[in-house]
Simulated assay, not measured.
Amino acid sequence: MTEKNPRYNGLYVYVFDANKLECGDVILARNAESTSFKGKAVSDAIATGSRGDFSHALLCTTPPTLIEAIDSGVSNINSHNCFIHDPEHVRVLRYPNAAIASAAASAAMMSFAKAYSKRAAISSIVPGVHLGRPRDDRTFCSALVAASFRAAGAPEFKTIDPMKTTPATLQRSARFADVTTDVLKRVLSFENIEDMSALDGDRRPSPMAGQAKLLFEYYSALLIPIDALMATYPGLLSFRPTSFFQCLDMIGALCFEVDKLPDTFEANDLRQRTGVIDELAFKLLSEGKWQAMQTAAEAIDDKSMRYTLEESFKPDPDIDLEGTLGFIRQTRDQIRSRASILNDPERPPGHSLVWDEWIRLTHLSLQYFEKRLSVLTEALGRAYPNAPSA
């Protein structure tokens, strides 16, 4: 059990309002409350070096999920498990075009598990310093945000080099609206706050902490036969994948296309090479390491759901009405987002081993989200029978 910190006794903190956070929202933060001298010093140096107030940038994909590029790579953090000591330490920025913001959120998810580039991050904040050509399979926090909006077609990002984008660049952009006061709400610190991550302070380890490293290892293994395929058949692929999920997407589509080719020597060779890549990807994805991390994360979520369900039977339940309504809405959004891949006409089942495995895993995650939705809806209906529907 995490040791209690008396600092939080009766202390008010800030959390994200589950009903206000939207796809594509950009969160800027500064590590002002860190207990680590080094962590705070690095944060201060980044903010000062970039002539801004913040040192880190995150992007909301499908609420409550935030995506970020950190030392271990591009990974996710759940906003429900986060808090902020002082709203001056963060900014929540919103792009005015919701369609572009949503597209940026989708683009960011394709960069999941990319490796982190410390060299590029340093080069972005030190004028005139070039530490070698940046690799397209590596990124850093604000570059991830800028590249995602550029891929989404945001005109302001067409001429901006993502690898030269800093948190200060995003902070100074006149295009974003500051919605910090709308998105954050002040609450009395939670009983389990020591187990939560402070976006302006100390982070807590997550059971999914190693996922970015693991999936980058998978990506690196797949890149060897993919590069060989691209060298043998130039022009076959429109781009070289830069993350595991881009590989997954490419393999699923390619397997479907090569199965339609006529029976020729070249087509058979292409099918054989594609099959080798597909089998390797399937072997990696089905080995169980990634699924074990998912299971551990779901166990933590289960603990929270059990608490909510038990509280719902009490006359004065410790259930945040607005927060739970928002969590229900966000869970429905997650279900819609995950379900969208199940009927992709460019990647139908039966052609790719790894894509079929990904569909199987998606079905399992949907079952989990449906379970969460059912528990939350039941608990809320019992605790607040007259509450509006989510």
Rank of each mutant, 00 (worst) to 15 (best):
E3M: 08
K4G: 10
K4L: 11
Y8L: 09
Y12G: 07
F16T: 08
A18Q: 15
K20D: 11
L21W: 09
E22N: 11
G24D: 00
I27Y: 06
A32K: 08
E33M: 15
F37T: 04
K38M: 10
G39T: 03
G49P: 05
R51W: 10
G52H: 04
H56F: 05
A57P: 02
L59V: 03
C60A: 13
T61F: 07
T62H: 06
P63H: 07
L66H: 05
E68W: 09
D71T: 14
N78D: 11
S79L: 13
S79W: 03
H80M: 12
H80E: 15
H80L: 11
H80Q: 14
N81F: 14
D86H: 09
V90E: 05
R91K: 01
L93A: 02
Y95F: 11
A98T: 09
A98L: 06
A98P: 05
A103W: 00
S106K: 08
M110C: 10
F112W: 12
K114C: 08
Y116W: 00
G132M: 14
D136M: 03
S142L: 00
A143P: 05
A143T: 05
L144W: 00
V145M: 01
S148L: 00
A152H: 06
A152N: 03
G153M: 01
A154W: 04
K158W: 12
T159H: 10
K164Q: 14
A174N: 14
R175E: 12
A177Q: 10
V179S: 02
T180I: 03
L184P: 02
R186C: 15
V187Q: 11
S189C: 15
F190T: 10
D195Q: 14
D195R: 02
S197N: 06
P205Y: 07
S206I: 14
S206R: 07
A212R: 00
K213G: 15
L215C: 12
E217F: 02
E217W: 02
A221R: 15
L223G: 04
I226G: 05
M230F: 04
T232E: 12
S238C: 07
F239P: 06
S243W: 00
A253N: 01
C255K: 13
E257W: 12
D259V: 01
D259C: 11
K260N: 02
L261K: 11
P262A: 01
P262L: 01
E266Y: 04
R273L: 08
D278K: 13
L280Q: 13
K283N: 09
L285G: 09
G288P: 15
Q294R: 10
A296I: 03
E298L: 08
R306H: 10
R306N: 12
F313R: 04
F313C: 06
P315K: 13
I319V: 12
G323Y: 03
R329Y: 01
R329M: 03
R332T: 10
D333Y: 08
I335T: 01
I335C: 02
A339I: 04
S340F: 03
E346M: 08
P348E: 06
G350L: 12
V354I: 14
I359H: 09
H363Y: 14
L364N: 15
S365V: 03
S365L: 07
K371Y: 14
L373R: 00
V375T: 15
L376P: 03
E378H: 09
G381E: 02
G381R: 07
R382D: 12
P388F: 01
